[in-house]
Design a protein around this nucleic acid. Sequence first.
DNA 1: CTTGCAATATAAGCTACTCTGAATTTATAA
DNA 2: TTATAAATTCAGAGTAGCTTATATTGCAAG
Lengths: 304, 304
Amino acid sequence: MDLMNYENLKLFRDVTQMRSLSRAAAANGVSQSAVTQQVQELERAFGIGLLDRANRPLTVTAAGRLYADFCRDVLRRRDEFLVELEQVKQHSLGTVRVASIYSVGLSEMVEIEQEFARRVPSACLEVEYLRPERVYAAVLADEADLGLVSYPEPSREITVIPWRKEEMVLAASPYHPLAGRAQVAPEELKGVEFIGFDRELPIAREVNRFLKDHNIEVNHTLHFDNLQMIKEAVAHRAGVSIMPARIMFEEMAQGRLVAIAIDAPELYRPLGIIHRRKKRFHQVAQAFIALLCESPKPELGLIS
Amino acid sequence: MDLMNYENLKLFRDVTQMRSLSRAAAANGVSQSAVTQQVQELERAFGIGLLDRANRPLTVTAAGRLYADFCRDVLRRRDEFLVELEQVKQHSLGTVRVASIYSVGLSEMVEIEQEFARRVPSACLEVEYLRPERVYAAVLADEADLGLVSYPEPSREITVIPWRKEEMVLAASPYHPLAGRAQVAPEELKGVEFIGFDRELPIAREVNRFLKDHNIEVNHTLHFDNLQMIKEAVAHRAGVSIMPARIMFEEMAQGRLVAIAIDAPELYRPLGIIHRRKKRFHQVAQAFIALLCESPKPELGLIS
DNA sequence: CTTGCAATATAAGCTACTCTGAATTTATAA
DNA sequence: TTATAAATTCAGAGTAGCTTATATTGCAAG
């Protein structure tokens, strides 16, 4: 028999509290017979009487008191557990943990967050901004449900959902010779002073391939591992660079940088949603993915 | 389902410890299928995953860790309970609590205790000497399993097992005129100075009835509520008295009292074992009762 | 990528447990 | 004593959860 089945524990606790089998039976919605059998079975299993039925109302023996205490403690621990569980459920079923690279664009993320909060008010969105490799790590370690990265790379453990393609433009200082142009042809970049990304970054590989495909030799002056530094360098007239248009908005509004369209349709930055291959997504996470995918925001024809 | 069935708790704890359903199954002597079903049922009941089976070896989710902790705590509490229970069992199934009047005779009780210890070495005998009314009270309150009393009186709550009949003799000082006699007839007691028991004691009623039945008028000089005081008074020549022979042994050996048989077969002190009417006796208690009853020690023909 | 192995999941049938309901016994109060 | 409320006993029914057999999945090695 189950010495520790919930019904049993509660039943026995109630019996000792109410000093009556029949009342405990009623209180727990079972027949009196069932309670009798339960207690008898307990006594048989323990090899000692728990109740003294010789007198009425029945009394509890020393062993019975011991068991009643046990019941009380376990039931209390159970309640505690259920409360904790509810909290964890609330958290892990109600929140989406997103790890994102910095350059996804804070302002857009805020918009998405707002829309998500509107649609699923009970949900909680936790966005963490990390360097690309740490985004992958977070997803792999299940510290994030979703990752937002550029140039997403699937692997055995990682699945990619393509998200959007960002227009890449030439970033230049307003004082640069090309600054006034609305568009440039790739060939026009020959020999320009160029600020690039560190080699190992995917975006660097893509940009370099683009340059190579067009037989363009540029003059690499500096390279950094993040966009912010590159923007700074461009603004300080160290050269031009190629980057997603959207992340330059602020600097453009301030007149620190200008964006010049490049006549090269193959030049774009793909963004992707990554997640662990066999991950089961709960309601809320699914809703969030749906939100991301459903409105692939119209590519902003930046200059217009 | 039973969220707290022992097998289940242990099973889940083992699963989380071993990080394997199949090993936990083997360790608990059930099929791997059963474990899968158990865990699935738990997850269904909780409405949240406990294990992450996507990777091998499987990992435990936050909720799973919570439940595993719960399992650990409950199992620990269970062990604790079982230890306590064993102690209580040892005590309440292995000890006989006896409440006895003083005048049952300490020396004989020691003998009985020794014999009992020889027969049931695991047992523990707790003898408590009390005034008669407190013996009844102890039995009623289940503070004693058995009571040893004289002139036992059954009641609704109390059952009597007749135990033995003690010879009653005339107790006198060695200096008393009757001291040399081996036996006296009841009539010879007419007019003697007599030390009696307090009226309300059963023994007083019996002795007085005996005297009245034989039309004997004695000269009541003193009365006490206990034998010890009466013996003292007799030794100090305040008069004679009637009492069980056996309790005078020591004083007789010391030459402080003499016992004289009384030619009256109806004069005896009945001793009885009392217990609560519907009491269930365990092995050890039954053995003790058997010991008491089996050897109704030969009435010691005291003088011989 | 396929293949093989080990772990886990699913399906279906069966066993055994525990509940219910009715009849019986027990404890207490009038 | 009788009347009552309470506890026990017994037999039968429904089902939870096990087992076995089979399918699926995860992972590592060729």
